[in-house]
Amino acid sequence: MHIETMFRSIVVATATTAVITSSAYAGNLADPIIEGDVIEEVQEDSQNRLPGWVLPVAALVVVGAIAASGGGGDNSGAAAGGGGTLPVINPKP
Protein backbone atom coordinates (compact mmCIF):
# COMPACT_ATOMS: atom_id res chain seq x y z
CA MET A 1 0.00 0.00 0.00
CA HIS A 2 2.95 2.23 0.47
CA ILE A 3 3.68 2.15 -3.31
CA GLU A 4 0.11 3.21 -4.14
CA THR A 5 0.39 6.22 -1.85
CA MET A 6 3.70 7.26 -3.39
CA PHE A 7 2.33 6.83 -6.92
CA ARG A 8 -0.75 8.87 -6.04
CA SER A 9 1.34 11.69 -4.57
CA ILE A 10 3.60 11.73 -7.67
CA VAL A 11 0.54 11.98 -9.97
CA VAL A 12 -0.92 14.80 -7.87
CA ALA A 13 2.41 16.66 -7.83
CA THR A 14 2.81 16.28 -11.60
CA ALA A 15 -0.74 17.49 -12.29
CA THR A 16 -0.30 20.46 -9.96
CA THR A 17 3.00 21.41 -11.62
CA ALA A 18 1.40 21.19 -15.06
CA VAL A 19 -1.51 23.43 -14.06
CA ILE A 20 0.73 26.02 -12.40
CA THR A 21 3.22 26.25 -15.27
CA SER A 22 0.57 26.39 -18.00
CA SER A 23 -1.25 29.27 -16.32
CA ALA A 24 2.04 31.09 -15.69
CA TYR A 25 2.87 31.14 -19.41
CA ALA A 26 -0.68 31.75 -20.68
CA GLY A 27 -0.73 34.68 -23.09
CA ASN A 28 3.03 35.10 -23.23
CA LEU A 29 3.63 32.77 -26.17
CA ALA A 30 1.75 34.72 -28.85
CA ASP A 31 2.89 37.93 -30.48
CA PRO A 32 0.79 40.98 -29.61
CA ILE A 33 -1.80 42.04 -32.15
CA ILE A 34 -1.16 45.55 -33.39
CA GLU A 35 -3.81 47.26 -35.48
CA GLY A 36 -2.69 49.07 -38.58
CA ASP A 37 -3.61 52.56 -39.67
CA VAL A 38 -7.09 53.10 -41.10
CA ILE A 39 -6.97 53.81 -44.83
CA GLU A 40 -9.92 55.66 -46.30
CA GLU A 41 -11.07 54.83 -49.81
CA VAL A 42 -11.10 57.68 -52.28
CA GLN A 43 -14.46 58.12 -53.99
CA GLU A 44 -14.28 58.65 -57.74
CA ASP A 45 -16.26 61.44 -59.35
CA SER A 46 -19.74 60.23 -60.18
CA GLN A 47 -19.75 62.40 -63.33
CA ASN A 48 -17.21 60.11 -65.01
CA ARG A 49 -19.16 56.91 -64.39
CA LEU A 50 -22.12 55.58 -66.36
CA PRO A 51 -25.38 54.96 -64.52
CA GLY A 52 -26.07 51.32 -63.63
CA TRP A 53 -28.93 50.93 -66.10
CA VAL A 54 -27.03 51.85 -69.28
CA LEU A 55 -25.19 48.54 -69.76
CA PRO A 56 -28.26 46.25 -69.36
CA VAL A 57 -30.31 48.44 -71.71
CA ALA A 58 -27.54 48.36 -74.32
CA ALA A 59 -27.38 44.55 -74.03
CA LEU A 60 -31.17 44.31 -74.52
CA VAL A 61 -30.97 46.55 -77.59
CA VAL A 62 -28.27 44.34 -79.13
CA VAL A 63 -30.22 41.13 -78.41
CA GLY A 64 -33.40 42.71 -79.77
CA ALA A 65 -31.62 43.76 -82.96
CA ILE A 66 -30.28 40.23 -83.48
CA ALA A 67 -33.73 38.73 -82.90
CA ALA A 68 -35.37 41.21 -85.29
CA SER A 69 -32.88 40.49 -88.06
CA GLY A 70 -33.91 36.84 -88.12
CA GLY A 71 -30.68 35.48 -86.72
CA GLY A 72 -28.95 35.36 -90.12
CA GLY A 73 -29.82 31.71 -90.76
CA ASP A 74 -31.34 30.10 -93.88
CA ASN A 75 -35.03 29.44 -93.16
CA SER A 76 -35.86 27.69 -96.45
CA GLY A 77 -35.28 24.14 -95.16
CA ALA A 78 -37.96 21.64 -94.12
CA ALA A 79 -36.83 21.73 -90.49
CA ALA A 80 -37.29 25.49 -90.40
CA GLY A 81 -40.89 25.33 -91.64
CA GLY A 82 -40.38 25.62 -95.39
CA GLY A 83 -41.15 29.33 -95.64
CA GLY A 84 -44.48 29.12 -93.77
CA THR A 85 -46.51 27.14 -96.36
CA LEU A 86 -47.95 23.69 -95.86
CA PRO A 87 -47.47 20.99 -98.49
CA VAL A 88 -50.53 20.16 -100.62
CA ILE A 89 -51.66 16.55 -100.38
CA ASN A 90 -53.74 15.33 -103.30
CA PRO A 91 -56.56 13.06 -102.28
CA LYS A 92 -56.93 9.73 -104.14
CA PRO A 93 -59.43 9.91 -107.03
Rank of each mutant, 00 (worst) to 15 (best):
S69I: 02
A80M: 12
A58H: 04
P51L: 06
E40K: 04
G52C: 09
G72I: 01
G70C: 15
A59V: 06
Q47V: 05
S46V: 12
G64C: 03
S76V: 05
R49F: 07
E44G: 09
S23L: 13
I66C: 01
T17Y: 08
N75E: 15
D31T: 10
V88A: 11
A26T: 03
W53C: 08
A67K: 10
D31F: 05
A79N: 08
A26L: 13
A26G: 04
V61P: 01
V11K: 01
D37W: 10
V57N: 10
W53L: 09
T14I: 04
G81P: 00
V62T: 01
M1C: 10
P91V: 03
I66W: 05
V42F: 12
G82E: 15
L60E: 01
L60W: 02
L60G: 02
P87G: 07
G84D: 15
V62C: 06
V63F: 08
L86F: 13
G27Q: 13
Y25D: 02
T16H: 07
L60M: 04
N90G: 11
V63Y: 05
G27Y: 12
G81Y: 01
T17S: 06
A59I: 11
V63Q: 11
D45Y: 00
I89W: 15
V62P: 00
P56M: 15
G64K: 01
T14V: 04
L55R: 09
A78R: 14
D74S: 01
P91R: 12
P93E: 15
Q43K: 12
I3N: 11
S22W: 07
P32F: 10
T17H: 09
V12F: 04
P87W: 15
V11I: 08
Q43W: 09
I20T: 07
V11T: 05
E35V: 07
P56D: 15
M6L: 13
G52D: 15
P93R: 10
G27P: 04
G72V: 03
I89A: 14
K92R: 09
P93S: 13
A79V: 06
S9K: 11
G36T: 02
M6K: 04
I39E: 15
D31K: 14
T16K: 01
G84I: 11
I3R: 02
P32A: 13
N28P: 00
G52S: 14
E35C: 05
G27E: 13
L60Q: 02
I34P: 03
I66E: 00
V19H: 04
I3V: 09
D74P: 00
Y25T: 00
V19W: 06
N75R: 14
A79W: 12
A15H: 00
V12C: 08
A13K: 10
R49E: 13
V88C: 11
Y25K: 04
S9W: 08
A58K: 00
P51R: 10
A13W: 08
G81M: 02
G72S: 01
I39L: 15
I10A: 03
T21K: 00
T14A: 10
P51H: 03
T14S: 09
A58Q: 07
Q43D: 09
I20P: 06
V61W: 07
N28Y: 11
A13D: 12
M6N: 05
A15W: 00
V54C: 05
G71H: 01
G77K: 09
V61E: 12
A30N: 12
A65I: 08
A68C: 12
G64I: 03
D37K: 11
